[in-house]
């Protein structure tokens, strides 16, 4: 077995419950690669990292990690993570969440966590669908996609999580896909070491549920090829789909000057003579 797996994965919990061809395994490997990068460079020891996740396919990603992990309630991962972070400000918290978990039921917590610019790293796995419940439309499902709850074609405008959190004050925003695992690993490592709210969206294939309705393609490798074709590397400007409808990937926004929530609290308390 791969050495990284031995170090970071609870082998006794294997096999994972992911479907064959799922993108979660790639994201899992990118995440442990990022932990190892930070651990081996001595920047952040892996014992200082804890993971929090909500409910959904993607929220099972950290449950196999040899770290302190909290697998919480649908949509509330960010609220749990904020409590954990505030009680242990010196530690790093990574949140794994999905498009439905983060943007639908957990939307309110996302807005406020991003606006606070609290030091959390959010990995939002976007598979364009509610996979665990069997393929219903999610906040990111493209228009006209036929799913189990949009039988005549989806009419809702999809939500762009990256633009949403950027507008609210998140200070590190990136988007990658499972077809870009090395870049994703780097982004997760950067997000963890960045002090502030880091939001990393990962486009991830769900060949079983989204394969039929969203992509019209059930072969995971072909969906991943599609990710390469239908994205462009963002190089400044506005992080919007281009004329051909290709979506931007890469580092979309970074502001190292933005003040982090806990720093603001400390500053306030100092000004009142309470620290």
């Amino acid at each position: 077995m791969n050495k990284l797996y031995e170090k970071y994965i609870k082998t006794e919990s294997l096999p994972t419950l992911f479907c064959p061809g799922c993108g979660n395994g790639i994201i899992q490997y990118a995440a442990i690669g990022a932990f190892e990068k930070l651990d081996s460079s001595g920047e952040i020891p892996s014992s200082d990292i804890a993971c929090v996740s909500g409910i959904g396919c993607s929220s099972w990603i950290p449950c196999y990690f040899k770290l302190d992990v909290m697998h919480t309630m649908h949509g509330r991962a960010l609220a749990f993570a904020e409590g954990l972070k505030l009680s242990r400000p010196e530690k790093k918290i990574v949140v794994f969440t999905g498009d439905g978990d983060c943007l639908a039921i957990g939307g309110n917590h996302l807005l406020h966590a991003a606006a606070r610019n609290i030091d959390l790293t959010v990995v939002m796995v976007n598979n364009y669908i509610y996979g665990m419940t069997g393929g219903q439309k999610s906040p990111t499902t493209p228009k006209e996609a036929v799913t189990k709850t949009s039988p005549f074609g989806c009419i809702d405008e999809p939500i762009d999580g990256c633009r949403l959190v950027t507008s609210l004050g998140a200070s590190y925003v990136a988007r990658w896909t499972t077809a870009h695992p090395a870049q994703l690993e780097k982004a997760i490592a950067e997000g963890i070491s960045h002090r502030g709210f880091s939001f990393i969206e990962v486009l991830s294939q769900c060949p079983v549920q989204a394969g039929k309705s969203v992509y019209g393609e059930k072969d995971p490798s072909k969906i991943m090829e599609g990710y390469k074709k239908n994205t462009y590397l963002f190089r400044g400007g506005e992080a919007k789909p281009d004329k051909d409808g290709r979506i931007p990937i890469g580092l979309l926004h970074r502001d190292d000057e933005a003040e982090e929530y806990l720093d603001k609290v400390e500053k306030k308390l100092k000004s009142q003579g309470l620290r």
Partner: peptide, 25 residues
């Protein structure tokens, strides 16, 4: 630490998170 959360369910979740961090909450 004190935080005014965005709603009550968030508050209840935050105190559970904080307790696992080691603080009575």
């Amino acid at each position: 630490a004190f935080i005014q959360m965005e709603d009550e369910i968030g508050s209840a979740c935050a105190i559970i998170g904080a307790r696992w961090g080691g603080s009575r909450a």
